[in-house]
Amino acid sequence: MPGSSASAVTAALLRGVERREEARRWLLVLPAGLFVGVLLFFPLLRIVSLSVWDPIFTLRHYGHAFQDPVFYRVLGVTFKVSLLTTVGCLVLGYPVAHLMAHARPAVANFLMTLVLVSFWTSLLVRTYAWMVLLGRRGVINNLLLAVGLISEPLPLMYNLFGVLVGMVHVLLPFMILPLYSVMKGIDRSLMLAAQNLGAGPFRSFLWVFLPLSFPGVTGGCLLVFMISAGYFITPALLGGRTDMMMGQLIELEVSQLLNWGYASALATILFVVVALLFLAYRRVATLRLPSGAS
């Protein structure tokens, strides 16, 4: 029939239009793709190849790492610090995000600005600022001494505490932003419904808000943990003798020992471990949140 063949032609034309539109959308992400490809993916490959070609194919750098007690210590410290930083950010960030999600728009914007203010100065400056605050003769110790609460300066820096303070401070926005965006999407009538159905404020939170904010918790924790795992400046400046993280070890191998192969192997291992952790966490997160959750 002529009619049906005509409509077949129309359908084919429409498909063509659709395909062209999709091609155009892909074209638009090309710059970003190239950027990431050249500046991220390529160096990553280069690092991996450095770790196994020295000058011919070898796994000795990996063998070295897995036999070196220092490697395990540093890996352990890296995960301990990252985990504690993540927990710290979550504990401090959750209430802030909660407040922001429930505040009037003007107040929420103001709070958002406060959260982002810390991005306005460099990481190094912020870390040094903490040194001024936490030092033996720093602002906090001087204040406590002056008030008479302590008789000797507290060791606030050059230890795990100092590292955590500095890292939590720097990484807090990375926790708050995903939390806030998820919380903002939680329908407020759900909390009203929970209260209407007999749940007091605490139980409404526990049963309804908390589980619904879980994707934000997952996202924020992942982000903070992964950035923490690669951290190097803050622990180097605020940490003590035993607070050496993988980033510091890698920096040492590169800048002091020019041991590129070993440094690359360490970097690759860190990358793989964090990636595995990421996948595992995602799996757990999706299990906890079945298809019903938004």
Binding site: D187, S189, L190, L192, A193, A194, Q195, N196, L197, G198, A199, G200, S204, W207, V208, P211, L212, L289, P290, G292, A293, S294
Partner: peptide
């Protein structure tokens, strides 16, 4: 407070808990 009133409310958007 609402949770002590023993009133049932049906909301415009149903307000069903999406994770349950």
């Amino acid at each position: 407070p609402p949770y002590k009133r023993d009133l049932g409310m049906v909301f415009q958007n149903y307000a069903l808990f999406p994770h349950m």
